[in-house]
Deep mutational scan, measured.
Amino acid sequence: MAMNGTITTWFKDKGFGFIKDENGDNRYFHVIKVANPDLIKKDAAVTFEPTTNNKGLSAYAVKVVPL
């Protein structure tokens, strides 16, 4: 089920960042999981599918909501 969130941290040079989800949890995401990576920036609103990996909470099918 899709969730909403906000990008809180973005490491462009490393290709990953973190999203604060609607429950207040931080989720890892990688640029290859983003549909529109050219719009990635700190504080951008996103929708995504929540999941977990071996390191904890993460996100896939991430879409940055255009302003």
Rank of each mutant, 00 (worst) to 15 (best):
A61E: 10
V31H: 07
K20H: 10
A2N: 10
F11L: 06
V65A: 08
T47E: 08
Y60T: 15
E49F: 15
Y28H: 07
G15P: 01
N54E: 13
K14P: 05
K42A: 08
L57P: 07
T9C: 12
F11I: 08
A35Y: 14
G17M: 01
T51E: 12
V65N: 11
N53V: 07
N23D: 06
A2D: 08
A44C: 09
I32R: 15
T8I: 14
V64A: 04
I19A: 00
F16H: 05
G56K: 09
F18T: 06
G5H: 00
E22G: 05
N36W: 05
Y28I: 06
F18I: 09
I40P: 01
I19D: 01
H30C: 08
N4T: 13
T51M: 13
A35M: 15
V34W: 03
K12I: 08
I32T: 15
K20Y: 09
L39G: 06
M3H: 06
V62G: 01
G56N: 06
F48P: 00
K12D: 07
V64M: 04
A61I: 05
A35L: 15
F16C: 05
D21L: 03
V64P: 03
K20S: 07
N36I: 04
F16V: 04
A45T: 11
N53I: 07
A35H: 11
N23A: 08
V65W: 12
V46A: 02
M1H: 14
I32S: 15
P50Y: 04
F48V: 01
V65I: 13
L67G: 14
V46L: 01
D13C: 10
S58N: 05
P66Y: 10
G24T: 03
N4Y: 12
N54C: 11
V34G: 04
A2H: 13
A45L: 14
K55R: 13
T47M: 09
N36R: 05
K42P: 08
D21G: 04
K63R: 12
K14N: 05
G17T: 02
P50I: 05
D43R: 09
V34R: 03
K42C: 08
G5R: 00
F29L: 03
I7C: 02
M1Y: 12
F29C: 02
I32M: 15
A44F: 05
N4D: 05
Y28F: 14
I7N: 00
M1D: 10
D38A: 12
T9A: 15
T47C: 08
K12Y: 08
V46H: 01
D13V: 09
P50G: 05
I40E: 00
M3K: 05
V62F: 02
K33Q: 15
V34A: 07
D13N: 12
G24I: 01
D25T: 05
P37I: 06
N26V: 15
N36D: 07
K20T: 14
N54K: 14
D38C: 11
P66R: 11
L39K: 12
D21W: 02
Y28M: 05
G15Q: 08
D21Y: 01
T51I: 13
K14S: 07
N36C: 07
G24Y: 04
D38I: 08
N54D: 12
G5T: 00
K14E: 07
T6K: 10
P66V: 14
N54F: 11
T52G: 11
L39P: 03
P66W: 10
K12H: 09
N23V: 07
A59Y: 02
I40V: 09
N36Q: 06
A2V: 14
T47Y: 07
D43Q: 09
A45C: 11
V46D: 02
Y28Q: 03
L39M: 13
Y28N: 03
V34K: 03
E22A: 09
N53M: 08
P37A: 07
D43F: 12
E49V: 15
F18P: 00
T47R: 09
N26I: 15
A2G: 10
V65P: 03
T9S: 14
M1R: 13
N26Y: 15
D13A: 11
A35V: 15
F11C: 08
H30Y: 06
N54H: 13
I32N: 15
N26C: 13
